[in-house]
Design a protein around this nucleic acid. Sequence first.
RNA 1: GGGGGCGUAGCUCAGUUGGAUAGAGCAUCAGCCUUCUAAGCUGAGGGUCACAGGUUCGAUUCCUGUCGCCCCUACCA
Length: 657
Amino acid sequence: MFQQIEERLAAELERQLASRFDLRAKVSLEQPKQSSFGDLAIPVAFQLARQLKRPPKQIAEELATGLASFPGVASLEIAGNGYINVRLDRAAYASALVRNEDEPVRETAGKFIVEHTNINPNKAAHIGHLRNAVLGDTFVRMLRKRGRRIETQNYIDNTGVQVADVVAGFHFLEKQSPREVQSLIDGPSIRFDYLCWDLYARTSAYYKDHADSLAWRDATLHAIEAGAGELAELGRIVADNIVQAHLKTMYRLGIEYDVLPRESEILHLQFWATAFALLKERKAIYFETEGKNKGCWVMPSSAFRTSAPQSEESAGDDDSKVIVRSNGTVTYVGKDIAYQLWKFGLLGKDFFYRLWSTYPSGHAVWVTTDQPQPIPSPSFGGASKVFNVIDSRQSYLQEVVVAGLRALDFNEQADASVHFSYEMVALSPRTCVEMGIELSEEDKRRPYVEVSGRKGLGVKADDLIDKLIETALVEVEERHPEAPPAERRAVAEQIAVGALRYFMLKFTRNSVIAFDFHEALSFEGETGPYVQYAAVRAANIFKKYLERGQTMPRFEEALTIDVLKAGFESEPLWQLLLLASKADGAIERAIAAGEPAHVAKFAFQLAQSFNNFYHEYSVIAEPNASRRSLLLWLTQFVREQILAAMQVLGIQQPIYM
RNA sequence: GGGGGCGUAGCUCAGUUGGAUAGAGCAUCAGCCUUCUAAGCUGAGGGUCACAGGUUCGAUUCCUGUCGCCCCUACCA
């Protein structure tokens, strides 16, 4: 609702600028620093002052007279040097909300792809992966909420070095056959992803001490790529089972996918070969005949470096990017270019798809395969915009991918390729100590310590979730000793997920999270449970109200303009209503900024305002019937908006807390 | 060396694209549970927005420089 008024006011002002001053300018409205200044502030007179060479105050006055009778606006005043402060007609505004006159969200044309999670399928997921998945999933929810059509992809690098290293570990270190590994998986009480976590670290350490054993990796990679033999069989077993484990972990957080594109199909279906031919034909890459990259196909650095400095000393350095190695194999970036081309429907090829699994909701996840399938699948790919949720350390590789598109003259798609980057999750030194990780004196002084899958250094996602549930359960059991255990468990799980998702979202994308157990396990202050608690309190008001045998009023009849006018003369009630009505605008702004954290912040602020209201006003005990209706409606409206924000954040409301 | 990011309260972080008196949470201290359950609420203290210039009506925000921290700069991803 707020957004509508904002847009209409801005449009009207732009019209006036054109007619009065013959200026075409974008007008933006802002929130006044203090609520006593009004509901909306227009600083446009300042911008115009320079162009028109007139005092801003004068311009503001002139514009204000033109807006005097704007529908929905109660009054305008000029403040400071030339702000136009707008006060809304509170009763009219509230009335429109009571009668649900908000414009419906319109679905936009075209499809967006959001690719996220993308965990190497060779070990258990850790907290860094959680940040990726929660960020990506929340962004998907934001976009869907605002009418965008989204396809969620989780790319599976099932033929890469990381899988190969675990396979090599099973085969060469553990001397285990595919059959033995499979029976390990089928056997009781073994967490295969945890077992691989350790094996991966062990194999990496072994490589370090025995340089000659690196030949295992090459042998394994070749076998996996060829797709035949015991090593390839092990590769399939490891990757498939770990993918299943990752999907399970992510589902605990309410994260689902539409399709799992796999690297094996990019290779087997000749996606790379097609892209390679294109790149060669358009001269985007060339065959290097000298220097350190001799024998490789490389992309010149001029293609992806915006500034091409090359100082005197470094002139000899070759910072071109190798796309095809001298042994003829393609790098990840090469495969990623092919994949990116497919996402936009530019490759002229498609995968085959097979059902991977179905979520309890009935939503299906599909996986790519290299063979035609009898059962038809939905169509995937062919998007107009692509968001790749990938950590910022890979920005260089992402630049190369986009440069690849550009070199092929797909400029529109290059512009529509977004690296949705975020900083890593590291560990606070305190948490390292708690986990028994030994730190050097240097590391202890650092603000954070980087996690390393290769070293097995990190916090596993499921361990963290379990720990959160355990912590929440202690509180729930204490507060609700009479409730059935299964129900308490369900509540604790919702609280744990709320805490975790909020924790991963409260930081903006480019801030490094120094993960700290104490902070992550906190359920007080700016946390998910705080928001959930506000929603539970709102729900409790209705629960108690109905329990006492009262019936809900018909708001449209009870809340006449006069009742609304009297009610919202109260500043705190009006401020709460106004804030709640900004939910859609907050989500839209968060999309524009690419910051899921903004939605989290909004949810927290609204919860905070509601908690204030909850403390200050008695809803059920209000003796005056029409005022009680007003308070009930306000509670309902705020609750709806908090729940809407929570849904976008992937946070549920427990039945009690 | 080159590219990118960051520096805001004791700690962890926001800051709506250049606007009005810079905000939260945690921690500390002082209060509030017979109430729609306190995972909550109220209040207090805490700031040279790293530093120095510049741009202009106005700078935490933009530009330049300095200092400090981080990431990237593989025929790994």
